[in-house]
Write a protein that binds this DNA or RNA. Structure first.
Lengths: 244, 244
DNA sequence: CTAATAGTGTCTATCAGACACTATCCT
DNA sequence: AGGATAGTGTCTGATAGACACTATTAG
């Protein structure tokens, strides 16, 4: 840091949210319809500018989460994952955006009413494939956020953030299958996830499904880092190949 | 992103660099002595404000690397890892800093002469333990950067960035030992690293040491992601415990 | 009973870790 | 030869993946 702070170029600071959840066993992302000028009417990630000069960046992310969606801040996992600040990314000027990854538990119904009326869950596959056009560089941000989630459920307990306070092992498996886009063997998954120290702990009760044997319920365990990690099966040499 | 861009608080944007290398088999970090007002004379991470309103953030990081150190930009690995933007972190105003992790190959001598005269390599252990006082929140940033490096050499080829264009397997092992702060079995490491697809490739030649059998030389392979990953031995339950 | 889902047992190929051993340089 | 470092062979215990089997519910 040098001393020329008075003639330093100044930028506008924003936060953007990649909010993921599972709906009908598929990974979905929350998008909002823009109501204002640049890209008005287009779909975009929830987000916005810093409100006050003293606002903490994570607070801004939580505030946008509360304002633009009807999600419960308490139950949503939120973490910063990258900064986007290329000069040309916003026509209003130099906007530097801190991107957050948010994981919401399964929700029975989409958002509605309130201020979050414009919010809609969209299947991630389609969004990343370009089925819907996103404002600014938001498709890139969404892709990076999804990739971060894919990588992070390997070695962290992030997958439990997709579930409610208690969940069955089958539900947890559905998270891995949806995020990774693959099938896993239920028997092996069952033991693997139980053997991973501190990942999940029994919640005592059981849950009856429409049919079949009732499943035991679990809670997220104390450990945030998984050892041993969940290993993503190798599809081919492609996965191990050139990436960041 | 909402429309109130004209009354959005504006911030100064900076970059800070956590530059790591190996010196005498120990992990070192490059620190500079501040020559200007806030924390003048104190040690700090290399870094500085954005120079032009159109400057790309990674370009600013590369520019500071060139200006404040005598390292060769071409050989230094550089990647963003986190943003620090708390309101109180800089007395000059709201400064949001994008932190970069830089990995430099082994260097025979420290920096000297030129503009980078104030730059000094310091052992990471001492810096993180608080032996030297760092300006601003730079000790926290340094700790986060080191932790990122520790985690990333597990599943990425980042460790090769600590080595020159060609290196021996023993040199690569020293990287893992220094960054993780543990000892590894040379025999098992030798085969493990060779079996990991695309991690290192033979360079044909050999290198004679002062004593002992000459070692084969290798180059970094094409894969940036390691499969299977290098596994960090479990020290106890502590490693698997509550972290981010 | 059948259908359906939850959970257990067990075999096999692979791999991490321990460590004896061989190879190739220097003096 | 002796010292030192590079590189190989091999055993053992643990684990991922495949998959047969048992358990518990609803109807």
């Amino acid at each position: 840091m040098n001393d020329d702070s008075w003639q330093t170029p100044i930028v506008m600071l924003a936060v953007d949210l990649v909010i993921l959840t599972l709906r009908r066993s598929r990974l979905h992302i929350l998008l909002v319809e823009r109501g204002v000028r640049p890209h008005r009417g287009a779909l975009a990630l929830p987000g916005g500018f810093l409100r006050h000069i003293d606002e903490e960046i994570p607070d801004a992310a939580r505030r946008e989460l509360a304002e633009e969606t009807d999600l419960d801040i308490e139950t949503v996992h939120l973490e910063e994952f990258r900064v986007y600040g290329s000069p040309g990314r916003d026509p209003r000027g130099r906007v530097v955006s801190v991107a957050f990854l948010a994981i919401a538990p399964r929700l029975p119904e989409p958002t509605a009413g309130t201020d979050a009326a414009a919010a809609r869950w969209q299947p991630v596959d389609g969004v990343l494939a370009g089925d819907v056009r996103l404002a600014f560089d938001h498709r890139r941000i969404a892709a990076d956020g999804v990739e971060r989630a894919r990588a992070k459920i390997e070695y962290s307990a992030l997958a439990t953030a997709f579930c409610g306070p208690t969940f069955t092992i089958t539900e947890l498996q559905e998270v891995y299958e949806a995020v990774w886009g693959i099938q896993l063997d239920p028997r092996n998954f069952y033991r693997k996830v139980q053997k991973t120290d501190g990942f999940i702990i029994p919640a005592g009760t059981e849950r009856k499904a429409a049919t079949g044997r009732p499943a035991r319920l679990f809670r997220a365990g104390p450990h945030k880092t998984l050892y041993p990690p969940m290993v993503r099966p190798v599809v081919s040499a492609a996965l191990t190949g050139e990436g960041t």
